[in-house]
Simulated assay, not measured.
Amino acid sequence: MSDGRSPGAARTGPRILLSVEDDAWGSLLSRPVDDLVREAIFAAANAAGLSPDVETEVSVTLSDDEDVRALNAEWRGKDKPTNILSFPMAALQPGDPPGPMLGDLILARQTLAREAEGEGKSADDHFRHLLVHGVLHLLGHDHESDEDADAMEALEIAILAGLGIADPYADAPGAPDDRS
């Protein structure tokens, strides 16, 4: 996936490298994957203070529960699938400028679909929420302490409101990729 710019056009966010490893993603989402990815990532990057002309890129891989479970077991010691994994290229603090590669986001289709259905959300909205959440992690935000969690959730809620998505924390405790 390119970032949608024509040569010489102003940059509007990070360059996005999209890999769809599970073809069923296309039938889960009602809008084109490229559009949803770009919309969420640009909104998160902008709201987190990343200058639109910073030369950085983010890799987004749309996978399945099996692959994400294996990665989650290897890198986090949790032998179960999760909705999204974020792998920052560098340990940033919020507001730090990223290097040329911001990091990788990997999403599990079946987990995302189960969560969206269970929470009465559209898959598109939950997908964009998880991407926003993941980008904030890549940019140094976390939810390890209650204070950090509150700040990250407030930023997520504001970004999502700008995308026309209701507050995902209004009825459900915990962050999208679980605080445990």
Rank of each mutant, 00 (worst) to 15 (best):
M152W: 04
S59L: 09
H137E: 13
G120F: 11
R69Q: 08
I41K: 03
L36S: 00
E57Q: 14
I157L: 12
S122T: 14
A24S: 10
T111E: 08
M1F: 04
A9F: 00
E147L: 15
R31V: 05
P94E: 08
N46T: 09
P173D: 01
H133P: 07
A43G: 06
D148N: 09
G13R: 13
A43C: 09
A70E: 01
G162F: 04
G134V: 06
E57M: 10
S27Y: 05
D142Y: 08
A149K: 15
F42V: 10
P173W: 04
S122W: 00
I159T: 10
P98F: 08
I16F: 02
L136A: 01
A9W: 03
S27A: 13
A161Q: 11
G164K: 11
A170I: 09
I41D: 00
S63C: 07
A45L: 12
D125Y: 09
L160R: 07
S63F: 07
S180V: 02
P14W: 07
G134Y: 12
P88V: 13
G95P: 08
P168G: 05
L138Y: 07
K80G: 03
I16L: 09
A170C: 11
A91V: 01
D146F: 12
A149S: 15
D35M: 03
M101V: 15
G77F: 05
R128H: 08
L107E: 12
L92I: 01
P94F: 08
S30A: 06
A161V: 06
S51H: 09
E55M: 09
N46K: 12
E39D: 09
R109N: 02
S19T: 13
L155T: 02
P94K: 15
G13A: 08
G4F: 13
A161D: 13
L50K: 05
M89F: 15
S6N: 13
L17M: 00
V135R: 09
P176V: 03
S51A: 14
E74F: 02
D65W: 10
A73N: 03
A73W: 06
L92T: 11
S122G: 09
V135L: 03
G4Q: 06
H141S: 00
S63R: 01
G134W: 05
G49V: 02
D64V: 04
T56H: 07
S6F: 06
L105Q: 04
D150H: 14
I16E: 11
P7G: 11
L62Y: 05
G120T: 14
A151V: 08
E119P: 03
V60T: 06
S86R: 03
K78F: 14
S30D: 15
S27E: 09
S59N: 08
P176A: 15
A40Q: 03
F42R: 14
D64F: 02
L92A: 05
E119C: 06
Y169E: 04
E153W: 11
E156N: 10
S30Q: 14
E156V: 09
M1E: 00
H129L: 14
R69C: 04
D22P: 05
E74D: 02
R128Y: 11
A45F: 07
V68E: 14
A149Y: 07
P173E: 03
K78W: 09
R76M: 10
E156C: 10
V20N: 01
L62A: 04
L131Y: 04
D148M: 10
S2R: 06
H126N: 07
R15C: 04
P32R: 00
S145I: 02
R69V: 02
D22E: 13
G77E: 01
L138D: 00
